[in-house]
Design a protein around this nucleic acid. Structure first.
Lengths: 157, 157
DNA sequence: CAAGATTGAGTGATCAATCTTC
DNA sequence: GAAGATTGATCACTCAATCTTG
């Protein structure tokens, strides 16, 4: 069939550039992770639901020494700017899940600290999230694949 | 040393809930991908630089039949809402990288189509991105690890 | 002057409501 | 009425500038 309109054409040599396997695989990685992530975000539709970002914050605080982290450390860990963290902790503070603690030895720093309510909520949500992960991720992978995945993450850290 | 203030406490049994290995690994996955992704975003600081979202869009359009996709298909593929895609294509149209094409057989649908300028830009950026990926990702992994990664992505699709 | 946190302005997303076409 | 795309309102982020403390 002849073409009625002239469309954008891509030559064979250009085709190989656009279809680079490395770009394809990485793109799939981004896509799969984004899709899984958003799946779990909407999965937490409990009465006391909170965004997945909050979950990540609370988890890191709960796992840290004294259940607290410097604002700047927290920002670095969750790949946000310090400005972003400032207002995120503001919101979590309003929700009663986090609070700020001053550092007596350096009055420039503020610690983000998870509250008792935050710990309670976290303990309630963790098993749900773990079950979701089991079903959506781990049940679909072999033990050796999980092992390799872990190794890959170590190398890319 | 005795404690001056009462801090949030986490018991050993609660500790095991919070430190679930499945949650940890998945969290690391999110983190590593987010970090890599933002690294490459700032890497494209060429004169005609564009955000990584645009790159992803252009790549998908260029690889598709007739270099076009329905707005809704595109939204689904890049995990955005249709509203988000509408304005994203608006911006790319303003930049001359994409355009809208009507569907003669169904006047409800609009196709997002990559322009010749878009293809040119994409062809310029792909080798740069591939080289970045090679250095930041593939040089750090063995061939078998990449193979397993691909298999994992297939299963999680 | 540097480090740490916050604030103001601007951007790009979501969600829900709307408009058009099937 | 349902499907597809757009629009309005809002939200959470970034970037750059600012304030405070070291």
């Amino acid at each position: 069939m002849w073409e009625t309109f002239v469309m954008t054409k891509i030559s064979p040599s250009q085709h190989s550039i656009i279809n680079d396997a490395r770009i394809t695989t990485f793109g799939r990685l981004i896509e799969v992770v984004a899709r899984l992530d958003s799946t779990f975000g909407s999965k937490l539709d409990e009465p006391e639901a909170f965004p997945k970002t909050w979950f990540e914050i609370m988890l890191r605080l709960a796992r840290s020494e004294n259940q607290q982290l410097k604002m700047s450390e927290l920002a670095e860990q969750v790949a946000l700017t310090t400005g972003g963290i400032t207002r995120l902790i503001d919101r979590m503070t309003t929700a009663g899940l986090a609070e700020r603690l001053a550092d007596p030895s350096d009055r420039r720093v503020q610690y983000a600290h998870i509250t008792q309510l935050g710990v309670d909520q976290l303990l309630k949500v963790c098993p749900i999230h773990a079950a979701d992960l089991q079903r959506e991720v781990y049940d679909r992978l072999s033990a050796s694949e999980v092992k390799v995945l872990d190794a890959i993450l170590d190398k890319l850290r």
